[in-house]
Each structure stands twice: as structure tokens, then as C-alpha cells.
Design a protein around this nucleic acid. Structure first.
Length: 541
RNA sequence: GGGGAAGUAGCUCAAUCGGUAGAGCAUCGGCCUUUUAAGCCGCAGGUUCAGGGUUCGAGUCCCUGCUUCCCUACCA
């Protein structure tokens, strides 16, 4: 095995990679280290642009032309006898990936890219750059990471440029880069080789940077409200807190089956029982379900619980929090929070969010009250919705109401106005406190809301149930298969019941989908665009 | 799950009715000290996603499979 073929044989290496390996070797022969070393005091490319000094550059240029004129007038003058050379130009050392190279023979122009700037120009001239640096400029490849050092000047066309006195490699790019103008558009390569996408398409990186800022802003906001961030188990013996198929795994030491969590809810509530008054968790959840442009098998939610709060408390927090995130995003991207672009929409986060009751919205959209079950059933059948289960038994009236609601009423919400839909039927939210005064109504209500933005469900909130007997009865009810509705629990968590028996204060709970919020704030239409590494089907080779 | 589109050189894309697979960029060789997708001259680069079928002949038509994207349904 030679140094040039550590893994593959020469025949298997693409000739473009082969060429790059040869160029790397040629740089080594110049005495340059192809993979670089520690660099202190590097300027970011943006900082380098900002460090440019117009006056110093002008002074340098006029002193140069004065010397030239003097030389022309009297060619016999020695350098010492010419007017003094003035050079107060700031000198910077920068690093970046080579995006473009224009070789004019004895002068090579490079455009570098880094995290701070998409393009910054370096001039490598035979006259002013050291010999190894100049030779290296001629044999570097697009995609290489380089370090350049030199004074800042402006070219004839007015572009701020680092006029290199030295140039050296910092890392080799052995892979042929995307086309320099059209760039990388193949979505499959963009997702599978995100590192390539990120430097070819700087907007991709900007989305991830903004995502980080948004999550930090969320933590800052909640900390300011007195919430404490906690971490609860990802590996659970029974995955509860939501209705979803979990990923299963196994622990060897204890020889037990474990699930990856589908929601942090039941553990966060245990902390309330233990006496923590306000807790939240930024939680990676895992659901063994399908993949599409708004679903990834692992996704991030933020759940919070506040002792002695209720769903109204949660509404105030959610509205303030979402508006805060919009403010951060608007500040970063430019624009204002009363018209945040999302696809064809402009979403208004500045005005008070819309609040509408479930029943109210139903009646507005359908034209008759949801308690008119005969019309509900007739309308559902007219629209071809499911009104009975596989074995022919008719769905409960309330399930049919909800089918219609999701089909018609949910779609009637103005997508450009964040909207809270309040007071869901209690039958649909078995783990929620019933709304006082509605117990004897034809459709008893629960203290729950859902927040919709741009047609997406961003998250629900509840006044939580803290009566252990009712909770236990609900658990058993669902386990018995009485309720087929999907948004229900399917596990019986005995220890959680015990925790409620110990006594949980009345509380409000809130869950927000972080990925979806980031989609809204970054104008991304697919969840894959806000996840650095979305789930992809493996490719066999 | 149902429907639609796509897959051709490293990248971005062409290829008319089924008739010799092309271009630009990148690479390689040459020229060039103020370029901006630099320019000029020249060379090279292909398992047309995979497998089967029809045909004298298939990138193109048919079948199967793989992958990606879009629409639709569902979990957030």
C-alpha cells in the first residue's frame, strides 16, 4: 500500500480526485503542510472587510505613484533617493474555502468563503507574494481551505481585497466541488452530504445558525419567567405522554426492553409532584412513524409545566414566546414581525393572536352547531368522512364532530394570523381538566387549546388533570380499547398514578414543536430544511 | 398508504419520430499582473439509476425494482 492509495486502488479513485491528490503532493513539495495548523488572531472575512482603511490605502497608492513619477523623471535615482513609501494599510490574516480562482498568469485572484461572508477577494501576485504561496495559488483546487495574509487594499473596480504577502493551505478538498455558478441543487445530495450543501449554499448554514439563536432565545425567555430547565429520561420502560409507536431497544446489563421516549410529559409532571414549580425541557422525541415534509422520526419539542397555572396561563406564555422568537428571527433576517414571509403568506405575529372557541369555529365554518348531531352525521357522510369503524359500529357523535372539525373548521382558520382554538370537547382530551360549568352540556368541554400558524399545528396546552382516580380510570378506559381515537394514551404507567396519589398541584402544561417553529421563522417549507441531518433511507453500495 | 414527476460526464443541464450521447462549468496542457461566473487556444472525460423485454437498432417504448422530490391521507 503506497501513501497515495490508503484505501482504494488507484483504478478506483476518480481521476478528478487523483488530480487533487497530485496537487496536494505538489504543495507538500513546496514545503507547505497541506492540512495546516493552529492559527491565532485570524480575522473573519467580514472583520477583514471592516478593517479596510480607505485613507491608508489612498496614501499608499499616492506614494507609489509619486515614486513611479520620480523614477520616470530621473531613471538614475536609486530606491533610497525616491520619495518615501507610505504603507499604513492594516494587515490581516484570514482563512476560508476557495470558491473561485481566476488565474491571470502572474496574478491569481481567489474568492474565499467563511461563516461570516459568502465571498472575499484575495490577490496573489508573483511580485508581492512569497514564492511558495504564489506557486501554491497555481496548484490549489476549488474547495481547498487556505490561509492568506497581507494588507487590505481596494482594486480598480473598488473591491476590498487582501493583497497576499503569503498564502498557505489549511485543508485539502479531495472531492470535486459543485458547479461554481449553478451550485448544488440536487436535494438528495444536499441532505445526504449536508457538509457539502452548507458551503455550497450558505443559506443552509444560516438556517441552522438561526435555529440555534431561536432555541437560545426560548431558553432565555423561559428562564426569565422563572422556569427551570430539566432533563428527563430518553430511555423509558414504557413510553408515555402521547399516542405514538415508539422505537424499541434493549438494555443488556439489566436485560430489559426499553423504549425511546415519545414525549417527556409524565416525567415533567413527576417533578411538579416533587415540588419544582415551573419546569421545561427541550426534548428530542422519537416516534416510529412515517417521514414527510413535516415529520421526521426524531424531532424536538419544548414542553413546560407550571404549578398553579392553567391553560390560560399557558396561552399567555405561548403568545409571548412565539412573538419573542419572531422578533429574534426578524432581527436576524431583516423584516418586521407583522409580516413574516412564509411561502406565499405574510404571517402577523405583532397583533394579538386570534382566539376562537372550538364550538364557535365549528359553527362559523359549518353553519350549524356541533351539538346538532343529526346534521353533523349527515354532513360528514355527504363529505365522505369516516363515521363508523371497520366492524361497522358507528363512531361516537363527538368523533364525527371532530372529523368534520378537522376537515372543514381547521382549514377555515386564517393562516396568516396565529390562532388559538380553545375549549376542545372533553371526550377528545381525556387527560385534561374539564372546563368548569360545561359538565352537563351536550358536549362537555376541556381546558385545552391548540395553536395554529400557517395551517400548521404548532402545539397544544392543557389545564392538567391531577386527580389520580380519574387519571387511572382514563388509562384503563383506553387500554380496554373503548376509545379508538388516536390522540389518546395507550400505556398504563402505574408509577405515574402513584405520583398523582402523592399529590400534584393544579397545573398548566404546554408543548411546542420546535422544528415547526423554526420552519416558520426561517421560511422553510420542509422539516428537512431545518434539520442538519434529516432521516434518509440508506443507500447500499 | 394512494397519485404524479424525476434520475444522462465531478456539477448544472440538452438530446426532435426509436437511428453515431452533446453543451456550459470544473479538470488537464498552453498564453496572460486589476480579475469579478475573467478571457483565448487545445485535450480529455459516459455501466444514460439497476435488471429484464420489444426491435435490425433503445437515453427514448414496455415490465420489475431502487432512490429523490411534489400532491394527498395520517401521527407533532
Amino acid at each position: 500500500m503506497t501513501e497515495d492509495q490508503p484505501i482504494q486502488t488507484v483504478e478506483e479513485i476518480h481521476h478528478l480526485e487523483q488530480q487533487r491528490r497530485e496537487n496536494r503532493r505538489a504543495a507538500e513539495d513546496l514545503g507547505l503542510s497541506p492540512y495546516g495548523h493552529r492559527e491565532d488572531g485570524l480575522y473573519s472575512l467580514r472583520e477583514a472587510s471592516e478593517a479596510f482603511d480607505e485613507a491608508a490605502d489612498e496614501a499608499n497608492k499616492s506614494s507609489l505613484s509619486a515614486r513611479k513619477d520620480a523614477k520616470k523623471a530621473d531613471p538614475g535615482l536609486s530606491d533610497d533617493e525616491l520619495p518615501a513609501l507610505v504603507d499604513e494599510r492594516p494587515v490581516v490574516r484570514v482563512a476560508g474555502r476557495v470558491m473561485l480562482s481566476r488565474d491571470n498568469g502572474s496574478l491569481v485572484w481567489l474568492n474565499l468563503r467563511d461563516h461570516s461572508a459568502d465571498s472575499f477577494q484575495i490577490a496573489v501576485s508573483k511580485r508581492d507574494c512569497d514564492e511558495a504561496g504564489f506557486k501554491y495559488a497555481k496548484l490549489l483546487d476549488l474547495g481547498d481551505i487556505v490561509v492568506a495574509e497581507g494588507p487590505l487594499t481596494k482594486t480598480r473596480t473598488g473591491e476590498i481585497t487582501c493583497w497576499a504577502s503569503t498564502l498557505r493551505p489549511a485543508s485539502k478538498c479531495l472531492v470535486p466541488p459543485p458547479e461554481k455558478h449553478a451550485g448544488l441543487t440536487d436535494t438528495e445530495i444536499r441532505y445526504r452530504q449536508r457538509y457539502l450543501d452548507m458551503w455550497a449554499n450558505p443559506d443552509t448554514t444560516r438556517v441552522f445558525m438561526l435555529r440555534s439563536k431561536l432555541v437560545r432565545a426560548m431558553r432565555w425567555y423561559l428562564d426569565g419567567l422563572g422556569f427551570v430547565e430539566v432533563e428527563t429520561p430518553v430511555l423509558q420502560q414504557q413510553a408515555g405522554g402521547a399516542a405514538a409507536r415508539p422505537f424499541m431497544t434493549h438494555m443488556n446489563a439489566l436485560d430489559i426492553g426499553l423504549s425511546l421516549r415519545i414525549a417527556p410529559e409524565l416525567y415533567l409532571k413527576r417533578l411538579l409532584v416533587g415540588g419544582m414549580p415551573r419546569v421545561y425541557e427541550v426534548s428530542r422525541n422519537f416516534r416510529n412513524e412515517g417521514v414527510d415534509k413535516s415529520h421526521n422520526p426524531e424531532f424536538t419539542s419544548m414542553e413546560l409545566y407550571q404549578a398553579f397555572g392553567n391553560y390560560e396561563t399557558m396561552r399567555e406564555i405561548a403568545e409571548g414566546l412565539v412573538r419573542e422568537l419572531a422578533t429574534v428571527a426578524a432581527g436576524e433576517r431583516g423584516g418586521s414581525i407583522d409580516a413574516m414571509p412564509f411561502g406565499d403568506l405574510c404571517v402577523d405575529y405583532a397583533s394579538d393572536f386570534v382566539r376562537v372557541g372550538y364550538g364557535e369555529l365549528f359553527e362559523q365554518a359549518l353553519g350549524f352547531p356541533m351539538t346538532d348531531f343529526a346534521r353533523v352525521r349527515a354532513e360528514a357522510e355527504r363529505r365522505g368522512l369516516k363515521t363508523k369503524s371497520e366492524d361497522g359500529t358507528a363512531f361516537d357523535d363527538i368523533l364525527v364532530v371532530n372529523e368534520l372539525f378537522e376537515e372543514v373548521a381547521e382549514r377555515s382558520i386564517d393562516p396568516s394570523r396565529p390562532t388559538f382554538v380553545l375549549d376542545y370537547p372533553a371526550a377528545l382530551s381525556p387527560l385534561t381538566r374539564p372546563k368548569a360549568g360545561t359538565l352537563d352540556d351536550p358536549i362537555p368541554l376541556a381546558e385545552r387549546w391548540d395553536l395554529f400558524v400557517a395551517g400548521m399545528e404548532i402545539g397544544p396546552a392543557y389545564t392538567e388533570l391531577n386527580d389520580p382516580d380519574i387519571q387511572e380510570a382514563k388509562f384503563r378506559e383506553q387500554l380496554a380499547g373503548i376509545d379508538d381515537e388516536e390522540s389518546t394514551f395507550r400505556t398504563f404507567d402505574e408509577d405515574f398514578i402513584n405520583a398523582l396519589k402523592v399529590g400534584m398541584p393544579p397545573a398548566g402544561g404546554l408543548g411546542l414543536g420546535i422544528d415547526r417553529l423554526v420552519m416558520l421563522m426561517t421560511d422553510s417549507r420542509s422539516i428537512r430544511d431545518v434539520l442538519p441531518f434529516p432521516m434518509m433511507r440508506p443507500v447500499d453500495k
